[in-house]
Design a protein around this nucleic acid. Structure first.
Lengths: 200, 200
DNA sequence: CGAAAATTTGACATGACTCAACTGGAGTGG
DNA sequence: CCACTCCAGTTGAGTCATGTCAAATTTTCG
């Protein structure tokens, strides 16, 4: 079923065209794996050993803080990358968890094989750098939005930006992504339907 | 004064050793520039055309939101990189500002010359990728901290992590970095000196 | 259907903001 | 050296945003 690699190759080729040997390295070094709903790809304390590309399904990466609250850093669905870059890179224990919200399928590469890929196909230094830059920009944007707006504003923005997720995810998860409690999100949703302009 | 390049070369060599020709490309493509206190390196609406390395001084990168509040994304001092990666990369108008908090000196490279550097010395694809990964990790960490802690907790963490800045910066700036008002920071500082444990 | 999970609702507590007034230096010009 | 202004920081009162907890309700799914 080599067809499975096509989405990944397409993804890379949005950044730079690959020749046959480069495509072959991708096929040789990435591994297919499928997960049931609620399975873990990474648990805090472990070292992140998979750089994942999602073929199908939906997952989240999150932190559980000392008050046992869950904070979601990122949702991913089809054609997204999912990895704890810090842990993967430094081979250090991760503070994050990654698990599935739906049955999912991924292609992943290990740190060793990624290193090999960089050696055999140096173009990937460029490709991964581009991906990282984009990702960095989006995380920065999120931090700024977080600093400058209320829960309600963030929720409205989320609905626009992540329309594909908004209907697919339970509210509890969305609240954990927005950084508010589920109760508060519920109240926000109620307020939105009753416009403020409705005076007595 | 080719000595000025040494800190930058040292910075790169923390990631990978450079040969003579690579060092020479750095010297040829980076440009020295100095700034007075309160000068701008980038204003919102402009395209970020400098990838800056700080030799001396201190600056901030920040967003001004629609309510005219300032949100500081990053402080930088000696031996730090300062750039709006998104704007620099995509050649799009930036939403951010960069200005100096002290008289400062930088080495910068333009997008065109950075592209040239990647061509002439491909090792920089690797080096910049590593730098980005580290930076990404730190922004992610900050987002998570932001999501999971109060202003007081963030202030205490700031004092530890950014001890070098804590004494160098006015409180107004620290508040804008922490995402709280200066008045609130003032109250936090007051509370800290009076431990909660002091009962009646 | 029935149990478990997700969502909603309400009362109350706390974190954080706004605004306005006050305090205490750090210049600056006479 | 003094008087004056300017700016950062502090303080307090009132308000809004959000959290906590507990209970009621709805939805999901075996």
């Amino acid at each position: 079923m080599s067809k499975q690699f096509q989405p990944l190759i397409n993804y890379f080729e949005k950044i730079a065209v690959l020749d046959e040997s480069e495509k072959q390295w991708v096929k040789d070094l990435f591994v297919f794996k499928s997960y049931k709903r609620k399975e873990f790809l990474l648990r805090e304390g472990e070292i992140c050993k998979q750089f994942n590309f999602l073929l199908k399904g939906c997952m989240r990466m999150y932190l559980v803080d000392d008050k046992a609250n869950t904070h979601i850093l990122q949702f991913s669905a089809e054609n997204w990358i999912k990895v704890d870059a810090g842990s993967f890179r430094e081979r250090t224990a991760s503070h994050l968890n990654i698990d599935t919200l739906e049955d999912s399928e991924v292609l992943y590469i290990t740190p060793e094989n990624l290193k090999l890929l960089y050696e055999k196909a140096p173009k990937f230094n460029y490709i991964i750098r581009e991906l990282l830059e984009k990702h960095l920009t989006s995380v920065q944007k999120r931090l700024l939005q977080y600093m400058s707006s209320t829960g309600e504003e963030r929720y409205l923005a989320f609905q626009k930006t992540y329309a594909q997720f908004a209907n697919r995810l339970p509210q509890t998860q969305i609240a954990a992504f927005l950084g508010i409690t589920p109760e508060h999100l519920s109240k926000i949703r109620k307020d939105i339907t009753k416009p403020k302009h409705f005076i007595s």
